[in-house]
Amino acid sequence: MNDHHLILRVITRMLTGPILLFGLYVQFHGDYGPGGGFQAGVIFAVGFILYGIVFSLRDLRRLIPDWIIHKLVALGVLLYAGTGIVSMLLGANFLDYNPLAGTPIGGQHLGILLVEAGVGITVFAVMLAIYYAFAGRPPSLNDEDW
């Protein structure tokens, strides 16, 4: 298994890091340019999926086991809704970020950061969970049949 697709393996090793870095950039630069949690989650997941396709699902599962993914799926939604609940506890409306920090604008910035992080985590984990689910089944086609 380790002796073919040499070029793919080398290129994947080179690309995985920059893809993950780009995902983080898109996540945190979403306020200033195109980007945000939805795109960043997908890009981050693509980095791992590329690794899983070229190497093996087993290696990827050792890196991020299923139970972590399943927890992350819920964590993102909880982070999002939790931000709303915290702003409610601080006396504002649900998902009104103004009281989260000292100034209303600071609160908005913090709220958007948290909410986008929640979106990113959920989208990333769902995409990876879906990939695990599909790739974990035994294929009905051999590699030669493609």
Partner: peptide, 13 residues
């Protein structure tokens, strides 16, 4: 778009 891919994945499953 993101909801679309999630529902597409459900259809594929």
């Amino acid at each position: 778009i993101v909801v679309g891919i999630a529902t597409t994945a459900l259809g594929l499953a």
